[in-house]
Design a protein around this nucleic acid. Structure first.
Lengths: 137, 137
DNA sequence: TGTGCGTACTTACTTTTAGTAAGTTTATCA
DNA sequence: TGATAAACTTACTAAAAGTAAGTACGCACA
């Protein structure tokens, strides 16, 4: 993260608590890097998309996100939870019943992720056309 | 990709060539998956951000994207080029001089990537706060 | 009393990917 | 003659992802 500079407006210093500390993704040691990794990880993106539809059980997410293994899904859910993007609600029953849903913070990222995902889905043919065009050179 | 269904409007079938085939990221074998991988790869995201600023040389990109190795940068640039997101212009000089710039297609994705990246940078403190809150439970 | 079932994981192991460091190329300049 | 610079490439190691099997446990059924 950027070290907060001593900004002031009209001679009045802005209190630290009110100043927003912006992350810098281009800085190798900025904590935003790990957030980006979690959010844009292969399965992270897809899990966020699915959870935008609403609360889902572990097994439901697994069914929707075609190809994810139980191990990777569990891992992905844990990292997204640890970043505060989703909450895990476990019911004390057997067999286990666990529900995942986006937090307000999670909905915000997921919305941006969804926009990007939509663009890719919508423009797939353009991309494939471009691919073929480049290949044939 | 979704198999094109036989859609028609007002009794008139839409020719295959005109119908847009949407990708489906949730389908394991959809080609959109590899595009997503390239675009949201750790270094792919950051390269796209840097190239939004304009044409850049290999070494300039490497300097801006803190932490990327030459190997990974070369690999990332190649995959983004193969998807038609950027063009590589090599000048026949020694030492080598190579310039990379976004294609119109690349600018579109990069814009969406940038929106997501901006959100993460802007909300880092919220995320870190959420992280700490979760940890302390 | 025991056997199987369902769900959400976890663990051990293999394969793939990423990271690191050193090498390659070649015109130009000291 | 030899060092230099820029953009890669290659060989090797470390880390991450994929695969498959195991674990926990309360309930239903035999």
């Amino acid at each position: 993260m950027k070290a907060p500079e001593n900004i002031e407006i009209a001679g009045e210093p802005i209190p630290l608590s009110l100043r927003l500390q912006r992350g810098e993704l281009l800085a190798a040691d900025c904590p935003s890097r790990s957030v980006l990794k979690h959010v844009t990880s292969q399965w992270g993106v897809l899990v966020l998309l699915v959870l935008l539809e609403g609360t889902k059980r572990f097994s439901e997410i697994r069914k929707k996100v075609n190809g994810v293994s139980e191990k990777m899904l569990a891992q992905t859910l844990q990292s997204l939870e640890s970043d505060g993007f989703l909450i895990r609600k476990s019911f004390p029953v057997v067999p286990p019943h666990v529900e995942y849903s986006l937090t307000p913070l999670g909905m915000e990222v997921a919305t941006h992720v969804s926009t990007l995902a939509d663009w890719i889905e919508s423009n797939l043919t353009r991309i494939i056309d471009a691919r073929n065009h480049i290949q044939s050179k």
